[in-house]
Simulated scan of single mutants.
Amino acid sequence: MIDERALISRILQGDRQAFRLLITQHERLVAHMVARVVKHDEEREELCQDVFMRVFEKIGDFNFQSKLSTWIATIAYRLAINHLRKQKMSFLDIPEEERFTDLFVEERNPAAILEDEDSDGMVLKLVDKLPPQYKMVLMLYHVEGMRYDEIGEITGMPEGTVKSYLFRARTLLKDKVIKYLGKEELL
Results as ranks from 00 to 15, higher is better:
Phe52Gln: 05
Ile113Tyr: 04
Met136Cys: 14
Glu97Thr: 07
Ser9Arg: 10
Glu106Tyr: 14
Ala169Asp: 02
Lys179Asn: 13
Val137Tyr: 05
Asp102Glu: 13
Glu115Asp: 15
Lys179Pro: 10
Ile2Val: 12
Val55Leu: 08
Leu114Val: 10
Ile11Ala: 01
Met53Trp: 11
Glu43Met: 05
Arg168Ile: 12
Glu115Met: 11
Ile72Lys: 01
Tyr141Ile: 11
Gly145Ser: 01
Met157Lys: 13
Arg10Gly: 00
Tyr141Asp: 09
Pro158Met: 03
Asp3Val: 03
Lys183Glu: 13
Ala73Ser: 12
Leu92Ser: 14
Ile81Cys: 07
Gly60Asn: 04
Met136Lys: 03
Asp61Cys: 10
Val143Ile: 09
Glu159Gln: 15
Leu12Asp: 01
Leu140Val: 05
Lys88Ile: 15
Leu124Trp: 12
Glu27Lys: 09
Leu140Ala: 03
Gln87Trp: 08
Val30Leu: 02
Asn63Ser: 06
Ile59Gly: 06
Ile81Val: 07
Phe167Glu: 14
Ile2Gly: 10
Gly121Ile: 10
Lys183Trp: 11
His40Cys: 09
Cys48Gln: 09
Tyr77Arg: 08
Met1Gly: 13
Arg78Asp: 02
Lys179Trp: 05
Ser66Cys: 09
Leu22Pro: 04
Lys39Phe: 11
Ala76Leu: 02
Thr161Gln: 14
Ile2Gln: 12
Ile72Gln: 01
Val137Asp: 00
Met146Ser: 04
Thr161Phe: 13
Glu43Trp: 10
Val137Lys: 02
Thr24Phe: 08
Leu124Tyr: 11
Gly156His: 15
Tyr148Glu: 13
Met33Ile: 01
Asp128Ile: 03
Ala35Arg: 02
Leu84Arg: 07
Val143Asp: 11
Met139Arg: 04
Val177Lys: 06
Glu98Trp: 09
Tyr180Lys: 03
Lys129Met: 08
Glu4Ser: 13
Lys179Phe: 13
Arg170Ser: 14
Glu46Lys: 11
Glu98Phe: 06
Asp61Tyr: 09
